[in-house]
C-alpha cells in the first residue's frame, strides 16, 4: 500500500505519481491521507489501481477517471468523477453539485445524498445514489443510467435524451420532455444489476422504483415547433 500525505506533500506530487503509473506496475493500492477538501485529487488516473482518500475532497475529485477504483471515505465537493470514462468511484458520504457530470462510462456510487445537477449531461456513465438527488439532476442526460434510492428534486431529467432514470422515492417535478415510462423486464434486470454493483441495501427491490425517460418530443427538430426555438 502506497500512502500519500496530501497536506504535507501537495497535490501535484500525488497526481504526477498517479499519472506516471504503468498498467502492469506493482503499486496497485494507494491511500491519500489529509485531503482537507483539496481540489482535483486523483484526477486523470488511467490505470487499474485502487485509491482510497481518507477524508473529504474539494472540486473534481476523480475527474476524467479511467480504469481506477477510487473511494472517498468522506464527502465529495462539486464535480466528483466529472467526465469519468471508465472504472469506479465510490463516495461514502454526500456529494456536492454536478456529481458525474458529462461522464462517458464507469460506475459512480454515492452512499449519501447528491445535491443539484447530479449526472448533468451524462453520456454513458452509470450513477447509483443511495440517498436523494437535488434539482435539475440528469439535465440533458444523453445515455447511461441514474439510480436514486431516495427522492429526486425539481426538474428531473429536463431536456433528456436517452439516459434511463430510476427513482424509488418521490420526484418533486419532471423537467421538460421527461416522462414516466413503463418498467419492463429488461429495465428490472438492469436495475437489479446496478443495485448490486452499487452496494445498495439488499432489501431494496427493483420493482419499488419508477422509470423516467425522454418523451422524444424536444430533441428532434420538428418544423411545427419552429416558433418555440
Amino acid at each position: 500500500m502506497q500512502s500519500y500525505d496530501l497536506a504535507a506533500n501537495g497535490l501535484r506530487g500525488l497526481n504526477s505519481q498517479l499519472h506516471a503509473l504503468k498498467a502492469q506496475g506493482n503499486m496497485t493500492a494507494w491511500e491519500v491521507v489529509n485531503p482537507r477538501g483539496a481540489h482535483a485529487i486523483a484526477a486523470g488516473v488511467d490505470v487499474p489501481v485502487e485509491i482510497t482518500v481518507r477524508g473529504s475532497t474539494g472540486y473534481y475529485c476523480a475527474g476524467m477517471n479511467k480504469q481506477a477504483t477510487i473511494r472517498v471515505a468522506g464527502s465529495a465537493g462539486p464535480g466528483v468523477a466529472e467526465n469519468m470514462m471508465s472504472g469506479t468511484v465510490i463516495v461514502e458520504g454526500d456529494a456536492s453539485q454536478y456529481a458525474g457530470a458529462t461522464g462517458r462510462g464507469g460506475l459512480l456510487v454515492i452512499k449519501g445524498n447528491a445535491s443539484s445537477r447530479c449526472g448533468i449531461s451524462m453520456k454513458g456513465i452509470e450513477i447509483v445514489v443511495h440517498g436523494s438527488v437535488g434539482h435539475m439532476s440528469a439535465f440533458m442526460a444523453q445515455s447511461g443510467a441514474l439510480v436514486v434510492c431516495g427522492d429526486a428534486g425539481e426538474a428531473l431529467g429536463d431536456s433528456l435524451y436517452e439516459a434511463r432514470l430510476y427513482v424509488r422515492g418521490s420526484v418533486t417535478s419532471l423537467g421538460a420532455d421527461c416522462i414516466e415510462k413503463e418498467m419492463r423486464s429488461e429495465h428490472l434486470e438492469q436495475l437489479a444489476a446496478l443495485l448490486e454493483r452499487g452496494q445498495c441495501d439488499p432489501t431494496i427491490r427493483p420493482q419499488d422504483f419508477r422509470r423516467y425517460g425522454s418523451a422524444r418530443r424536444l430533441y428532434t427538430f420538428n418544423i411545427d415547433n419552429a416558433g418555440e426555438y
Binding site: 482537507r36 477538501g37 483539496a38 473529504s56 474539494g58
Partner: peptide, 14 residues
C-alpha cells in the same frame, strides 16, 4: 455545540 460555520468550500472549515 461550539459554533456554526460557513465556507464557500469545505477547505475553509478544515
Amino acid at each position: 455545540a461550539h459554533y456554526v460555520a460557513f465556507g464557500s468550500e469545505y477547505r475553509a472549515l478544515v
